[in-house]
Design a protein around this nucleic acid. Sequence first.
DNA 1: TGGCTTTATTGATTTAGGTCATGGCAGCAC
DNA 2: GTGCTGCCATGACCTAAATCAATAAAGCCA
Lengths: 253, 253
Amino acid sequence: MSEPGSGQGGTHSGERVCPSNPNVSCGDCRLGDLCLPITLDAGEINQLDEIVKRGRPLKRGDALYRQGEKFTSVFAVRSGSVKSFQTALDGEERVTGLYLPGEILGMGGISSMQYDNTAVALETASVCEIPFHLLEELSVKIPSLQGRFFRLMSQEITKDQKMLTMVSTNTAEERVSALLLSISARNHHRKLSQTCFILPMTRAEIGSYLGLTLETVSRIFSRLQKQGLIKVDNKEITIEELDGLKALAKVSS
Amino acid sequence: MSEPGSGQGGTHSGERVCPSNPNVSCGDCRLGDLCLPITLDAGEINQLDEIVKRGRPLKRGDALYRQGEKFTSVFAVRSGSVKSFQTALDGEERVTGLYLPGEILGMGGISSMQYDNTAVALETASVCEIPFHLLEELSVKIPSLQGRFFRLMSQEITKDQKMLTMVSTNTAEERVSALLLSISARNHHRKLSQTCFILPMTRAEIGSYLGLTLETVSRIFSRLQKQGLIKVDNKEITIEELDGLKALAKVSS
DNA sequence: TGGCTTTATTGATTTAGGTCATGGCAGCAC
DNA sequence: GTGCTGCCATGACCTAAATCAATAAAGCCA
């Protein structure tokens, strides 16, 4: 019953089901307490459910939306991971965000009515698409949904400003440590291991995200490993000394 | 009738009045077409007006709110200018935003219920305070206000991401040029000179905002002046070659 | 299985911008 | 006026990270 791509909708069973299954409703999705529905009651979740579109899983490299396209929807990551990036005038890509299950993206497009970056799946991923005009209408009817969405956007603002502060003041070592800790904390929040995980991005993508070159990222990984703080096996990171890494990262969280 | 600090409220005259006058209603404020009220009709603006608190003008250095304080309101700059900054663990201040008349700040505090940065006036300034819980209630009643606020927050997200991209990829010269152009464009939008203006920040604040040292900012100003692109007289900047500066800044706007 | 492409590591060298230091100048109090 | 204090300019030097380069390892597919 919880295999991806099983049968019909209406999966109102006792156990919550696999989030990669496209037929899971918001009420049954095990991400409910991270995603939009938080603060909504059962009836409201059903209304939200009606406007959410759950597409086929995406393959690595598939785009959710592209920079410059007409803005229509925001997206919630259900499984897998997604990066967003801006394409500069010279064609260079600059990674602006990494989105894990339960996180919402695409909100930068609301004001200008077109997406301000491109979002692509970093691995096989499933996402929920929420048409924004419907979300807006529903938010008028459900004040707590409006509030939830205000809070989500505010969170994005806070996150971006933290990132900005970090990129413009911290050393390469601090930035890399902070990213590892951020992924660790988000995994922990999703009840996954906070000490061992697979990096969804290449060294080049991490560098682009942190304002570093891929060589520097690689060197920092090696250095942190030499110091015994982490273990690196290609994309698999094991944090050996969580507190040591936190001390290095010098971030408040 | 348009002197700051004149008499009573109810200034419904034909001509729009000076925005530093604390008794001007949203409908009469000449910033109406930049600020929150855009897209609202007359009746709606009156409702918005009821919840907006217009305080005494602030002096240079006065705080609108402080990092860590309980979040209560968002603020609109009416006249003067405001900076926001985050205080790091070591007590260092990092400037995260510059807000000119018509611009809204404080939205980062919504999600965590406390302000995520400190905002202080850079010069004599007047601001409107909008208690957020009242704005939220009103937004349910006035869908176009909800929409306007969604757009404002989205704008902040887009702005921050652009800033992030810039700080992590562009050279010192490009960053300084881009900031000058940003101020120029915002002045132009307010029907002020786009080629001559007073910088509201010190070299140190500009550096902090752009992820540079004050020495570098100073050197870049000198260099741009030597190239004939701008004229610098202490805080007064005159852009001599707008197109040349744009070419240097390498930004899309 | 081998050949191809993408990704990662590590070393040598360069450079943009930081750091340190000095002097000038504007604004303000008295 | 004189002396302070904060801000700015500019020079000398240094360093973190970029760039250039070569090699190795992983993933892919035919």
